[in-house]
Design a protein around this nucleic acid. Sequence first.
DNA 1: AATCCTCGCAACCGCAGGCGC
DNA 2: TGCGCCTGCGGTTGCGAGGAT
Length: 272
Amino acid sequence: MGRLPCCEKAHTNKGAWTKEEDDRLIHYIRVHGEGSWRSLPKAAGLLRCGKSCRLRWMNYLRPDLKRGNFSEDEDQLIIKLHSLLGNKWSLIAGRLPGRTDNEIKNYWNTHIKRKLVSEGIDPQTHRPLNETSDKNGTAKHKPTAPTDLDFRNAPTVPKTVSVTAPPLGFAKSESIEAGNCTSSGMTTDEEEQQHELNLELSIGISSAGSVESKRKVDSNSDYRWLVGEATVVVAKPTAVCLCWQLGFQRSEICRNCEHKNGLFRYSRGLSS
DNA sequence: AATCCTCGCAACCGCAGGCGC
DNA sequence: TGCGCCTGCGGTTGCGAGGAT
């Protein structure tokens, strides 16, 4: 038995949304709230697939979206997050208030990738292009920094790696317990740079015999990812807010920012 | 002025995980 | 415990706008 289609395609519109459809969707969600996407189109009088409605709302109509160009700070944040998380756009978006995963994904593919290549950096490995492989194709991996742990291309996975950091206060507290991966060799400047980004991340080996899902999102705990044999844990940011970038105090929790998924959304206007 | 080409973004699609029954 | 539904994610596609020829 196959999967049921998400909607009856014969009677649904596709393609660009009209102003009227947008208005209907906005009005319906204002009255009834988000959710129940499957039944929403019918209830709202829209000839659209529920998934399409959700996408339109999430990526375009949500009032807390920050439209407009990405700032240089956002660029750098995206690059750093991508170096750590890879193409986990939703996780990256969760750390960029007002930005959507789709928007960041598009921005990455159209701007940042090109920018990194022009700077001689491999956008996938975040290492210099001429360092990614030698004539024999063997990786010349030189451990760089604790927050630059890209196990996808690492020759070996450290037996024990944990990277912890305090809530976003940008304090210089960090612990590294590593077999192969250590912070040794970093200059003070490099260490300073690494401390610029506090992600509340921890990385540990998945316990033998335990079955770890590829992606585990639990609203009551951390976000876990299997990267090779290692588990990357992104702590649920209950006390983290990136609003400092927009002028709020560091470490201050903006109550409007916390999204129901535990990550952050941006609810206040820039000028407020 | 017309056509072609490129780029950027919105939207689509398939899949996987969570959750309720 | 297994099954089916719902939701969310990430890769891909299609189209419109703007620039080049």
